[in-house]
């Protein structure tokens, strides 16, 4: 099968949908001839024209609100939020309007919109262009939250997000844009709320999101050399969360490490750990759950400091060993 990049997969999913459905359009800053800050929409204005590849002023609240209003009246907008950090400016429209209209109107109306947004550090863009703020939106009933880690997942999950009748926040990791994987040319959908076991194993479960999936897989390959069998579970969507797959895996391995790039304090890892603690899988745990996340600082500019701010492969390797050692001590 052909390989394409994550970035191309996102663009392809949008383009296929836009060819079929005139209600779908893309709106955002510098998405026209510029092609978007990361080049995701490059070439799309040539195919679809400026009405449907709608270049906007720098007005995140305005764009988000226009997306909500157009979705409520029959369109299916995709909003490109140039950097996920800028969600702070759009958040009123997303949290107070998009997420709540249907409920507060007693089940009338729907808001089928997708907010696509690049997140994460690793580009040297420092504190205001590098955050991972996905936990904020997972807290809001009415929103769905997606974090694809591969090109294949990005295409299928974006299709599902565009088909969904609810507001979906779709986090694209900047460092994954150039990664490639096998992606079918035809359209396909990956249901929201279906985790993917990216690697099977028997000794320990790592639940990892976005770019941490790749770091966890690297760690697993290293640990295999030492005879440790790691299972890597990628939830792919945080809301809805596939608790069943995670519980099954933990029940099998008896050990859990959760790893994400977002700051550990208040991060979604706490939710996954609590969910396991409250589930039947708790009885299978042979050691305390270990969480890895970003340190409690803004993302710094210096490349070495930047790397140190988020979990790296050796941190995951150590966390796995530590968790397995605790088991030995406990016994």
């Amino acid at each position: 099968m052909r390989e394409i990049t994550y970035l191309e997969a996102v663009r392809e999913a949008m383009s296929i949908e836009m060819r079929k459905n005139n209600d779908v359009f893309l709106m955002g800053e510098d998405i026209g001839v510029y092609g978007g800050a990361f080049g995701v929409s490059r070439g799309m204005i040539e195919e679809f024209g400026p009405e449907r590849i709608r270049n906007t002023p720098i007005s995140e609240a305005g764009i988000a609100g226009a997306a909500v209003g157009s979705a409520l009246t029959g369109m299916r907008p995709i909003m490109e939020l140039q950097f996920s950090d800028f969600i702070t400016i759009a958040l009123d429209q997303i949290v107070n309007q998009a997420a709540k209209l249907r409920y507060m109107y007693g089940g009338k109306g729907k808001v089928p919109m997708v907010v696509r947004t690049p997140s994460g550090s690793g580009t040297g863009a420092a504190a205001q262009h590098s955050q991972s703020l996905e936990a904020w939106v997972t807290h809001i009933p009415g929103l769905k939250v997606v974090q694809p880690s591969t090109a294949y997942d990005a295409k299928g999950l974006l299709k599902a997000a565009m088909d969904d009748d609810n507001p979906v926040i779709f986090y694209e990791h900047k460092l994954l844009y150039k990664t490639s994987s096998e992606v079918p040319e035809e359209e396909y959908s990956i249901p929201l709320g279906k985790a993917d076991v990216k690697r099977e194993g028997t000794d320990i479960t790592i639940v990892a999101t976005a770019i941490m999936v790749h770091k966890a897989l690297e760690a697993a390959a290293e640990l295999e050399k030492e005879g440790i069998s790691v299972e890597v579970v990628d939830p792919r969507t945080l809301v809805p969360l596939d608790t069943e797959t995670i519980i099954e895996s933990v029940a099998k391995t008896g050990h859990l490490v959760v790893v994400h790039e977002a700051v550990k304090r208040g991060g979604f890892g706490g939710e996954i750990a609590s969910m396991i603690a409250e589930s039947e899988a708790f009885d299978y745990l042979d050691a305390p759950i270990k969480r890895l996340g970003g340190v409690e600082t803004p993302i710094p500019y210096n490349p070495e400091l930047e790397k140190a701010a988020i979990p790296q492969v050796p941190d995951i390797v150590n966390a796995v060993k530590e968790t397995l050692t605790k088991k030995a001590v406990a016994k």
């Binding site: 609100g65 157009s70 409520l72 309007q97 109306g109």
Partner: peptide, 30 residues
């Protein structure tokens, strides 16, 4: 809200409905 009558709803956030109205107008335009 009364969507059948074209009332897209009352917003409790001051100014919250203004961009939403623009979105509604965008639908009419597109």
């Amino acid at each position: 809200a009364d969507l059948d009558k074209g009332n897209l709803g009352a917003m409790g956030i001051v100014g919250g409905g203004i961009p939403l109205a623009v979105g509604s107008a965008l639908t009419a335009h597109m």
